[in-house]
Design a protein around this nucleic acid. Structure first.
Lengths: 109, 109
DNA sequence: ACTACATTTCTATATTTATGGAAATATAGA
DNA sequence: TCTATATTTCCATAAATATAGAAATGTAGT
């Protein structure tokens, strides 16, 4: 992931409505939710939701699949993964400090 | 860190100029740099830089300390830490998947 | 106090982004 | 085809954000 992609992904999550949408999809992962269900749960006009879903899709943070009249959205974890790696590397000095995974390997600095 | 703080921090980093500033400060951590040095390195007008530094300060991502006529800026890792924790918890389903052990550079799933 | 330099605030402007109603599009069933 | 429902696109408007020159402020040395 390069800087531009990171900025796009960050900008996507840096918006209350979109962060809510994304968190909801994380919670319901991997099944996902139809657009209408999201709109209902978050009490959001469909056009506004559609706008945000497009942004999230464009940033690669969510993926969609049509099923009949419904469009299901779900988290694309690979992008979130890449974003976390980018931040760890570029914004945490590569230090484990910023990434507390409670790992077993025992490497310490 | 609550949602509002997370959105503020994310919005701060979701801007090319600010991300550059922050990365530069991470690289020069923990010493930090004077505002003028940053402006020089990034070739940025001082007023523009000052605007962005204020944003970063307000988000708690950087801290400053005056020394004579210079104001030194440096990374506040505790906020970045909290942001990473927030993302891991809320946007990665609490899974380790999103928080790779940093040593596996080119690992692909 | 005066000068030099560092940084911030003021100000205006340009640009981007968010919102939501209305219309259009897509899908399925009778 | 007609109708009902799901989702998206179109559009206008409102709001937030970025940029940078000019002026103001702060700090130190003479």
């Amino acid at each position: 992931m390069d800087t531009k992609q990171a900025v796009t992904a960050l900008a996507c999550l840096a918006q209350e409505a979109r962060l809510e949408i994304f968190r909801l999809l994380v919670q319901t992962s991997p099944a996902g939710l139809a657009a209408g269900e999201i709109a209902l749960k978050l009490n959001m006009p469909s056009s506004t939701l559609s706008f945000h879903l497009k942004e999230l899709s464009h940033a690669g943070l969510v993926k969609s699949s049509q099923s009949g009249r419904f469009v299901y959205y779900s988290t694309d974890f690979s992008t979130m993964n890449a974003l976390m790696a980018f931040l760890t590397e570029n914004c945490c000095g590569g230090k484990q400090d910023c990434c507390p995974p409670a790992e077993a390997a025992g490497e310490e600095k």
